[in-house]
Design a binder for these strands. Structure first.
Lengths: 207, 207
DNA sequence: CAGCGGATCAACCGATCGGTTGATCCCGGG
DNA sequence: CCCGGGATCAACCGATCGGTTGATCCGCTG
């Protein structure tokens, strides 16, 4: 099974290579520190699975890299391996076409099995990630939509309604409508309280 | 030279061991995923240098672990190796007794040299970290007063000016004056942006 | 197909916020 | 003793926000 690594930290790439050297059915056929380099290399190394970090320093981020990889002809599976478990990160990664979402805190054996499962095209999620997704499914009444989470992230950056509208290519009226829903679902009535509630519930993550 | 690793991610520990195996003057004499385990192990492994991550999952964080290690009799040097370069993290780590502060994004060779320098008791800083510290020294006018931090904490709870005034037994006018100063010092112009800036700088902590 | 929920937009209005100017009080250092 | 800085308060005003009502469009599901 051919595996390609994408992570901006040399230490992590070296660690993955070292850990995977004991798994003889998994061959690391290449690695890259950023999304652009990965896209170029993947077309010639033809991996079965790409192990992708979401935070990639400068250049495109892991979500955008995942999206472009999945748009290639006969693309490899993309398995996200990252530190954070916010709804915003998970939803975006899945939307971009990721086959799975594992946390770096997971034990190595779970990582190995995840890579093999991803190669078979199976969806693989860390226990904590799966729990979060399940809770979202069970009570969709209180779960925020993807759009509402986008609003929250811009809210957390300190943007006003006009700025949010501009960045999402919608009108202020729509932003306000979303905000009313967000406030209602989080049980708050100010933008600041919404941000702190969202951070505490791990809906979003402060950079 | 005897080195001890503290990092909650098995992948990172394996990576460091793999990278350092090529440096024959550096012996990894132990490793731990958390601060408590590290403290117990260090007393018997007697390393010269401890390589410390700041984010350690559950339990005490890297700063607190560093402080306790430096309180041991004839303690090892502690070299911080972490992902972030926020002013607050740097200041807190240095205050806790860290010998140096390196970023995980740095090239491995810089890491090797840093470990050797730390073993000699020299202070070692990543270039970006050194730049931030210099700017911090030159511009101390951004320190918030105790009262302003109190205001920020109530701000983060989502309280309006009236509520803040009531809880601090002052008038709304005074709250507004404090807010103007807080905005100015943090370089923002909305309450929400002030909260996120304050959280990132660790001036306040979300519950 | 009918209906539901999500996303979009509009208009209105009172409440709150952000910015400005100016003032008093008190403490501690030069 | 005077000065600076922090904390306190006041009044004003334009901008923004929060709440409400109502509407259209689209995709999914029973």
């Amino acid at each position: 099974m051919r595996l390609f690594l994408v992570d901006d930290h040399p230490v992590v790439r070296a660690g993955l290579v070292a850990l995977l050297s004991g798994e003889h059915d998994i061959d690391v056929v290449g690695e890259a520190p950023g999304g652009e380099e990965a896209l170029r290399a993947i077309t010639v190394r033809t991996p079965d699975v790409v192990l992708m970090d979401l935070q990639l320093g400068d250049g495109i981020d892991g979500v955008e890299a995942t999206r472009r990889i999945r748009e290639l002809p006969s693309p490899p599976q993309v398995l996200v391996l990252t530190t954070y478990e916010s709804d915003a990160d998970i939803m975006r990664a899945v939307d971009a076409g990721a086959t799975g979402y594992l946390l770096k805190a997971c034990p190595p054996e779970e990582l190995f099995q995840g890579i093999r499962a991803a190669a078979r095209g199976e969806t693989v999620l860390s226990a904590k990630v799966a729990t979060r997704m399940m809770r979202r499914m069970r009570d969709p009444g209180t779960a925020l939509s993807a759009r509402e989470v986008e609003i929250l992230e811009l809210l957390a950056s300190g943007a006003g309604n006009r700025e949010i509208a501009r960045r999402l290519f919608i009108t202020e009226a729509t932003v306000k409508t979303h905000l009313v829903h967000v406030y209602s679902k989080l049980g708050v009535d100010t933008r600041t309280a919404a941000v702190t509630a969202a951070v505490e519930r791990r809906l979003i993550r402060l950079p």
